[in-house]
Design a protein around this nucleic acid. Sequence first.
DNA 1: CTTGATAATCAGAAAATCTAATTACATAAT
DNA 2: ATTATGTAATTAGATTTTCTGATTATCAAG
Lengths: 172, 172
Amino acid sequence: MQNSHGGRPPMQMHPASVLVRQILVLNEVMEFIMRREMDLNETDFQAMQHLMKQRSMSPGELAKVLHLTAAATTTVIDRLARKGHITRTPHPTDRRRWLISPSEQSVRAAMENLMPMILDVDNKVRSYNDRDQAVIVDFLNSVVASMGSRVAALENGPAPIPPTVHTDSRKV
Amino acid sequence: MQNSHGGRPPMQMHPASVLVRQILVLNEVMEFIMRREMDLNETDFQAMQHLMKQRSMSPGELAKVLHLTAAATTTVIDRLARKGHITRTPHPTDRRRWLISPSEQSVRAAMENLMPMILDVDNKVRSYNDRDQAVIVDFLNSVVASMGSRVAALENGPAPIPPTVHTDSRKV
DNA sequence: CTTGATAATCAGAAAATCTAATTACATAAT
DNA sequence: ATTATGTAATTAGATTTTCTGATTATCAAG
Protein backbone atom coordinates (compact mmCIF):
# COMPACT_ATOMS: atom_id res chain seq x y z
CA MET A 1 0.00 0.00 0.00
CA GLN A 2 3.03 2.27 0.22
CA ASN A 3 2.87 3.63 -3.27
CA SER A 4 -0.30 2.48 -4.95
CA HIS A 5 -1.06 6.01 -6.23
CA GLY A 6 -4.64 5.84 -5.06
CA GLY A 7 -6.31 8.67 -6.91
CA ARG A 8 -3.54 10.11 -9.00
CA PRO A 9 -2.80 8.25 -12.22
CA PRO A 10 0.85 7.13 -12.20
CA MET A 11 1.53 8.80 -15.59
CA GLN A 12 4.34 7.15 -17.51
CA MET A 13 7.33 9.43 -17.45
CA HIS A 14 10.23 9.16 -19.79
CA PRO A 15 13.31 7.61 -18.14
CA ALA A 16 15.16 10.85 -18.78
CA SER A 17 12.58 12.79 -16.80
CA VAL A 18 12.92 10.37 -13.94
CA LEU A 19 16.69 10.71 -14.05
CA VAL A 20 16.52 14.50 -13.95
CA ARG A 21 14.35 14.25 -10.85
CA GLN A 22 16.83 11.77 -9.35
CA ILE A 23 19.69 14.17 -9.94
CA LEU A 24 17.90 16.90 -8.05
CA VAL A 25 17.25 14.57 -5.12
CA LEU A 26 20.81 13.28 -5.12
CA ASN A 27 22.05 16.83 -4.99
CA GLU A 28 20.14 17.37 -1.77
CA VAL A 29 21.43 14.13 -0.33
CA MET A 30 24.99 15.15 -1.14
CA GLU A 31 24.50 18.52 0.44
CA PHE A 32 23.12 16.95 3.58
CA ILE A 33 26.07 14.62 3.94
CA MET A 34 28.57 17.40 3.33
CA ARG A 35 26.79 19.65 5.81
CA ARG A 36 26.90 16.99 8.45
CA GLU A 37 30.57 16.33 7.79
CA MET A 38 31.41 20.02 8.05
CA ASP A 39 29.05 20.49 10.99
CA LEU A 40 27.22 23.35 9.28
CA ASN A 41 23.54 24.13 9.27
CA GLU A 42 21.72 24.65 5.99
CA THR A 43 22.15 28.41 5.97
CA ASP A 44 25.82 28.44 6.83
CA PHE A 45 26.48 25.81 4.18
CA GLN A 46 24.65 27.86 1.57
CA ALA A 47 26.70 30.86 2.57
CA MET A 48 29.89 28.89 1.99
CA GLN A 49 28.65 27.80 -1.43
CA HIS A 50 28.07 31.40 -2.46
CA LEU A 51 31.37 32.57 -1.02
CA MET A 52 33.27 29.87 -2.86
CA LYS A 53 31.52 30.67 -6.10
CA GLN A 54 32.14 34.42 -5.78
CA ARG A 55 35.50 34.28 -4.00
CA SER A 56 34.44 37.10 -1.69
CA MET A 57 31.31 39.02 -0.79
CA SER A 58 30.20 41.72 1.61
CA PRO A 59 27.73 40.80 4.34
CA GLY A 60 25.07 42.75 2.47
CA GLU A 61 25.57 40.79 -0.73
CA LEU A 62 25.49 37.58 1.28
CA ALA A 63 22.25 38.63 2.95
CA LYS A 64 20.62 39.13 -0.46
CA VAL A 65 21.51 35.75 -1.91
CA LEU A 66 20.64 33.94 1.32
CA HIS A 67 17.32 35.78 1.64
CA LEU A 68 18.26 36.71 5.19
CA THR A 69 18.12 39.94 7.14
CA ALA A 70 21.35 41.82 7.72
CA ALA A 71 21.15 40.89 11.40
CA ALA A 72 20.88 37.17 10.72
CA THR A 73 23.70 37.44 8.23
CA THR A 74 25.94 38.91 10.89
CA THR A 75 25.39 35.84 13.02
CA VAL A 76 26.03 33.53 10.07
CA ILE A 77 29.34 35.27 9.47
CA ASP A 78 30.20 35.14 13.16
CA ARG A 79 29.58 31.40 13.27
CA LEU A 80 31.58 30.70 10.14
CA ALA A 81 34.45 32.89 11.32
CA ARG A 82 34.48 31.21 14.73
CA LYS A 83 34.81 27.84 13.00
CA GLY A 84 37.59 29.10 10.76
CA HIS A 85 35.65 28.69 7.52
CA ILE A 86 35.91 32.36 6.52
CA THR A 87 37.87 35.51 7.20
CA ARG A 88 36.70 39.12 7.46
CA THR A 89 38.91 41.69 5.76
CA PRO A 90 38.20 45.41 5.42
CA HIS A 91 36.62 46.51 2.17
CA PRO A 92 39.20 48.38 0.07
CA THR A 93 37.04 51.40 -0.78
CA ASP A 94 34.05 51.37 1.61
CA ARG A 95 34.99 51.35 5.26
CA ARG A 96 31.51 50.41 6.37
CA ARG A 97 31.77 47.01 4.72
CA TRP A 98 33.74 43.85 5.17
CA LEU A 99 34.93 41.45 2.57
CA ILE A 100 34.15 37.90 3.57
CA SER A 101 36.31 35.23 2.00
CA PRO A 102 36.32 31.47 2.41
CA SER A 103 39.40 30.11 4.14
CA GLU A 104 42.03 28.25 2.19
CA GLN A 105 41.28 24.89 3.74
CA SER A 106 37.53 25.23 3.32
CA VAL A 107 37.99 25.76 -0.39
CA ARG A 108 40.37 22.85 -0.60
CA ALA A 109 38.06 20.52 1.32
CA ALA A 110 35.12 21.44 -0.89
CA MET A 111 37.23 20.91 -3.99
CA GLU A 112 38.32 17.51 -2.79
CA ASN A 113 34.74 16.53 -2.11
CA LEU A 114 33.19 17.79 -5.32
CA MET A 115 35.90 17.80 -7.95
CA PRO A 116 35.88 14.05 -8.58
CA MET A 117 32.19 14.18 -9.40
CA ILE A 118 32.46 17.31 -11.47
CA LEU A 119 35.35 15.90 -13.46
CA ASP A 120 33.52 12.64 -13.81
CA VAL A 121 30.56 14.34 -15.45
CA ASP A 122 32.77 16.58 -17.55
CA ASN A 123 34.83 13.64 -18.79
CA LYS A 124 31.71 11.67 -19.49
CA VAL A 125 30.15 14.31 -21.68
CA ARG A 126 33.41 14.81 -23.55
CA SER A 127 33.51 11.11 -24.30
CA TYR A 128 30.61 11.48 -26.75
CA ASN A 129 31.12 12.57 -30.32
CA ASP A 130 30.37 16.18 -31.20
CA ARG A 131 26.88 15.55 -32.45
CA ASP A 132 25.88 13.65 -29.33
CA GLN A 133 27.41 16.33 -27.16
CA ALA A 134 25.27 18.83 -29.03
CA VAL A 135 22.19 16.74 -28.33
CA ILE A 136 22.99 16.62 -24.62
CA VAL A 137 23.60 20.35 -24.49
CA ASP A 138 20.42 21.02 -26.39
CA PHE A 139 18.40 18.90 -24.01
CA LEU A 140 19.93 20.43 -20.90
CA ASN A 141 19.36 23.87 -22.35
CA SER A 142 15.71 23.15 -22.76
CA VAL A 143 15.49 21.92 -19.18
CA VAL A 144 17.04 25.18 -18.03
CA ALA A 145 14.65 27.09 -20.25
CA SER A 146 11.63 25.27 -18.87
CA MET A 147 12.71 25.81 -15.30
CA GLY A 148 13.51 29.42 -16.05
CA SER A 149 10.09 30.10 -17.48
CA ARG A 150 8.48 28.33 -14.53
CA VAL A 151 10.44 30.60 -12.21
CA ALA A 152 9.33 33.63 -14.19
CA ALA A 153 5.73 32.46 -14.11
CA LEU A 154 5.78 31.78 -10.39
CA GLU A 155 7.36 35.12 -9.63
CA ASN A 156 4.46 36.98 -11.23
CA GLY A 157 1.78 35.29 -9.21
CA PRO A 158 0.11 31.97 -10.02
CA ALA A 159 -0.64 32.38 -13.72
CA PRO A 160 0.00 29.10 -15.54
CA ILE A 161 1.69 29.25 -18.93
CA PRO A 162 1.10 26.74 -21.73
CA PRO A 163 3.96 24.29 -22.26
CA THR A 164 6.37 24.85 -25.12
CA VAL A 165 5.81 22.95 -28.35
CA HIS A 166 8.88 21.03 -29.46
CA THR A 167 9.65 20.18 -33.07
CA ASP A 168 9.65 16.41 -33.32
CA SER A 169 12.74 14.95 -34.97
CA ARG A 170 11.85 11.30 -34.47
CA LYS A 171 12.42 9.00 -37.46
CA VAL A 172 8.77 7.92 -37.92
CA MET B 1 36.99 42.26 -9.99
CA GLN B 2 33.88 40.29 -9.12
CA ASN B 3 34.95 37.01 -10.61
CA SER B 4 38.59 37.17 -11.61
CA HIS B 5 39.30 33.80 -9.94
CA GLY B 6 42.34 35.07 -8.13
CA GLY B 7 44.19 31.94 -7.15
CA ARG B 8 41.99 29.19 -8.53
CA PRO B 9 42.42 28.52 -12.23
CA PRO B 10 39.07 29.03 -14.00
CA MET B 11 39.19 25.54 -15.59
CA GLN B 12 37.19 25.34 -18.79
CA MET B 13 34.07 23.30 -18.12
CA HIS B 14 32.02 21.70 -20.81
CA PRO B 15 28.78 23.62 -21.46
CA ALA B 16 26.87 20.54 -20.39
CA SER B 17 28.57 20.58 -17.00
CA VAL B 18 27.67 24.21 -16.57
CA LEU B 19 24.08 23.48 -17.50
CA VAL B 20 23.82 20.66 -14.99
CA ARG B 21 25.02 23.04 -12.29
CA GLN B 22 22.50 25.63 -13.51
CA ILE B 23 19.69 23.12 -13.23
CA LEU B 24 20.56 22.40 -9.62
CA VAL B 25 20.61 26.10 -8.80
CA LEU B 26 17.34 26.74 -10.62
CA ASN B 27 15.74 23.95 -8.65
CA GLU B 28 16.59 25.77 -5.43
CA VAL B 29 15.29 29.04 -6.81
CA MET B 30 12.03 27.37 -7.76
CA GLU B 31 11.69 25.83 -4.34
CA PHE B 32 12.27 29.17 -2.69
CA ILE B 33 9.60 30.89 -4.73
CA MET B 34 7.10 28.11 -4.12
CA ARG B 35 7.87 28.13 -0.41
CA ARG B 36 7.30 31.84 -0.22
CA GLU B 37 4.06 31.55 -2.15
CA MET B 38 2.78 28.78 0.13
CA ASP B 39 4.15 30.53 3.23
CA LEU B 40 6.08 27.43 4.33
CA ASN B 41 9.52 27.19 5.86
CA GLU B 42 12.12 24.92 4.33
CA THR B 43 11.33 21.98 6.59
CA ASP B 44 7.58 22.12 6.18
CA PHE B 45 7.97 22.39 2.42
CA GLN B 46 10.25 19.36 2.35
CA ALA B 47 7.69 17.47 4.40
CA MET B 48 5.03 18.30 1.82
CA GLN B 49 7.29 17.10 -0.98
CA HIS B 50 7.76 13.74 0.70
CA LEU B 51 4.09 13.42 1.55
CA MET B 52 3.08 14.12 -2.04
CA LYS B 53 5.60 11.66 -3.36
CA GLN B 54 4.51 8.90 -0.95
CA ARG B 55 0.82 9.81 -0.72
CA SER B 56 0.88 9.21 3.05
CA MET B 57 3.40 8.63 5.79
CA SER B 58 3.50 8.17 9.55
CA PRO B 59 5.19 10.86 11.65
CA GLY B 60 8.04 8.46 12.29
CA GLU B 61 8.69 7.91 8.59
CA LEU B 62 8.51 11.63 8.04
CA ALA B 63 11.03 12.23 10.83
CA LYS B 64 13.48 9.85 9.15
CA VAL B 65 13.41 11.43 5.71
CA LEU B 66 13.50 14.96 7.14
CA HIS B 67 16.38 14.11 9.48
CA LEU B 68 14.37 15.56 12.36
CA THR B 69 13.62 14.31 15.86
CA ALA B 70 10.18 12.89 16.53
CA ALA B 71 9.40 15.93 18.66
CA ALA B 72 10.26 18.39 15.92
CA THR B 73 8.25 16.32 13.47
CA THR B 74 5.20 16.63 15.68
CA THR B 75 5.44 20.41 15.45
CA VAL B 76 5.92 20.24 11.69
CA ILE B 77 2.75 18.19 11.40
CA ASP B 78 0.90 20.54 13.74
CA ARG B 79 1.87 23.55 11.63
CA LEU B 80 0.92 21.89 8.36
CA ALA B 81 -2.39 20.67 9.77
CA ARG B 82 -3.20 24.11 11.17
CA LYS B 83 -2.68 25.58 7.69
CA GLY B 84 -4.81 22.91 6.09
CA HIS B 85 -2.01 21.36 4.04
CA ILE B 86 -2.36 17.89 5.56
CA THR B 87 -4.75 15.69 7.48
CA ARG B 88 -4.10 13.19 10.27
CA THR B 89 -5.98 9.91 10.05
CA PRO B 90 -5.58 6.93 12.37
CA HIS B 91 -3.26 4.19 11.17
CA PRO B 92 -5.32 1.15 10.11
CA THR B 93 -3.33 -1.46 12.03
CA ASP B 94 -1.18 0.36 14.60
CA ARG B 95 -3.09 2.57 16.96
CA ARG B 96 0.04 4.34 18.14
CA ARG B 97 0.58 5.90 14.71
CA TRP B 98 -1.10 8.41 12.48
CA LEU B 99 -1.24 8.50 8.75
CA ILE B 100 -0.42 11.94 7.44
CA SER B 101 -1.76 12.78 4.00
CA PRO B 102 -1.50 15.92 1.92
CA SER B 103 -4.77 17.74 1.43
CA GLU B 104 -6.54 17.66 -1.90
CA GLN B 105 -5.91 21.30 -2.71
CA SER B 106 -2.23 21.15 -1.73
CA VAL B 107 -1.69 18.36 -4.21
CA ARG B 108 -3.59 20.21 -6.87
CA ALA B 109 -1.68 23.45 -6.30
CA ALA B 110 1.65 21.65 -6.48
CA MET B 111 0.57 19.89 -9.64
CA GLU B 112 -0.43 23.14 -11.24
CA ASN B 113 2.89 24.70 -10.36
CA LEU B 114 5.13 21.86 -11.43
CA MET B 115 3.29 19.91 -14.11
CA PRO B 116 3.89 22.37 -16.92
CA MET B 117 7.62 22.15 -16.38
CA ILE B 118 7.63 18.40 -15.97
CA LEU B 119 5.58 17.92 -19.12
CA ASP B 120 7.78 20.39 -20.91
CA VAL B 121 10.88 18.35 -20.19
CA ASP B 122 9.15 15.09 -20.92
CA ASN B 123 7.86 16.34 -24.26
CA LYS B 124 11.23 17.73 -25.13
CA VAL B 125 13.06 14.47 -24.59
CA ARG B 126 10.43 12.57 -26.56
CA SER B 127 10.95 14.94 -29.46
CA TYR B 128 14.38 13.41 -30.15
CA ASN B 129 14.81 10.26 -32.20
CA ASP B 130 15.40 7.02 -30.34
CA ARG B 131 19.15 7.08 -30.65
CA ASP B 132 19.40 10.61 -29.30
CA GLN B 133 17.04 9.75 -26.47
CA ALA B 134 19.35 6.89 -25.63
CA VAL B 135 22.31 9.27 -25.56
CA ILE B 136 20.48 11.60 -23.19
CA VAL B 137 19.48 8.77 -20.91
CA ASP B 138 22.98 7.37 -20.97
CA PHE B 139 24.45 10.72 -20.00
CA LEU B 140 21.93 11.34 -17.23
CA ASN B 141 22.53 7.85 -15.94
CA SER B 142 26.20 8.53 -15.65
CA VAL B 143 25.52 11.75 -13.78
CA VAL B 144 23.37 9.82 -11.34
CA ALA B 145 26.07 7.19 -11.04
CA SER B 146 28.76 9.79 -10.34
CA MET B 147 26.66 11.51 -7.74
CA GLY B 148 25.73 8.18 -6.21
CA SER B 149 29.33 7.11 -5.85
CA ARG B 150 30.19 10.51 -4.38
CA VAL B 151 27.43 10.03 -1.84
CA ALA B 152 28.74 6.57 -1.02
CA ALA B 153 32.27 7.90 -0.68
CA LEU B 154 31.23 10.78 1.56
CA GLU B 155 29.15 8.52 3.77
CA ASN B 156 32.19 6.38 4.61
CA GLY B 157 34.36 9.23 5.77
CA PRO B 158 36.49 11.45 3.53
CA ALA B 159 38.21 8.86 1.34
CA PRO B 160 38.46 10.17 -2.23
CA ILE B 161 37.85 7.74 -5.06
CA PRO B 162 39.48 7.98 -8.49
CA PRO B 163 37.17 9.24 -11.24
CA THR B 164 35.58 6.76 -13.62
CA VAL B 165 37.24 6.20 -16.98
CA HIS B 166 34.83 6.63 -19.88
CA THR B 167 35.21 4.91 -23.20
CA ASP B 168 35.68 7.63 -25.77
CA SER B 169 33.34 7.35 -28.75
CA ARG B 170 34.44 10.54 -30.48
CA LYS B 171 35.07 10.32 -34.21
CA VAL B 172 38.80 11.20 -34.08
C1' DC C 1 -0.22 -10.82 31.27
C1' DT C 2 3.92 -9.02 32.09
C1' DT C 3 8.05 -7.10 30.24
C1' DG C 4 10.55 -4.57 27.01
C1' DA C 5 10.39 -1.99 22.73
C1' DT C 6 8.23 1.49 19.73
C1' DA C 7 5.18 5.77 18.25
C1' DA C 8 3.85 10.06 19.20
C1' DT C 9 3.56 13.90 22.18
C1' DC C 10 4.70 17.28 25.85
C1' DA C 11 7.84 20.47 28.55
C1' DG C 12 11.62 23.20 28.79
C1' DA C 13 16.27 24.53 26.82
C1' DA C 14 19.09 25.80 22.86
C1' DA C 15 19.73 27.54 18.20
C1' DA C 16 18.49 30.49 14.37
C1' DT C 17 16.01 34.29 12.55
C1' DC C 18 13.34 38.45 12.89
C1' DT C 19 12.26 43.50 14.09
C1' DA C 20 13.85 47.75 15.70
C1' DA C 21 17.41 50.70 17.23
C1' DT C 22 22.35 52.15 16.94
C1' DT C 23 26.87 53.35 15.10
C1' DA C 24 29.91 54.42 11.46
C1' DC C 25 30.61 55.77 7.07
C1' DA C 26 29.35 57.42 2.27
C1' DT C 27 27.10 60.52 -0.92
C1' DA C 28 24.48 64.42 -2.47
C1' DA C 29 22.92 69.15 -1.90
C1' DT C 30 23.52 73.12 -0.52
C1' DA D 1 33.18 72.63 3.74
C1' DT D 2 28.90 71.46 6.15
C1' DT D 3 24.90 69.41 6.62
C1' DA D 4 21.38 66.11 5.49
C1' DT D 5 20.08 61.83 3.91
C1' DG D 6 20.96 57.15 2.87
C1' DT D 7 23.52 52.79 3.38
C1' DA D 8 26.35 48.87 5.87
C1' DA D 9 26.94 46.31 9.64
C1' DT D 10 26.05 45.34 14.29
C1' DT D 11 23.51 44.91 18.77
C1' DA D 12 19.41 43.88 21.79
C1' DG D 13 15.43 41.55 22.58
C1' DA D 14 11.43 38.86 20.78
C1' DT D 15 9.81 34.97 17.97
C1' DT D 16 10.21 30.64 15.60
C1' DT D 17 12.20 26.21 15.04
C1' DT D 18 14.60 22.29 16.71
C1' DC D 19 16.60 19.63 20.35
C1' DT D 20 16.87 16.69 24.75
C1' DG D 21 14.57 14.20 28.07
C1' DA D 22 10.37 12.55 30.11
C1' DT D 23 5.56 10.73 29.49
C1' DT D 24 1.66 8.11 27.66
C1' DA D 25 -0.29 4.72 24.81
C1' DT D 26 0.22 0.73 22.15
C1' DC D 27 2.46 -3.31 20.25
C1' DA D 28 4.91 -7.77 20.41
C1' DA D 29 7.53 -11.53 22.59
C1' DG D 30 7.96 -14.81 26.11
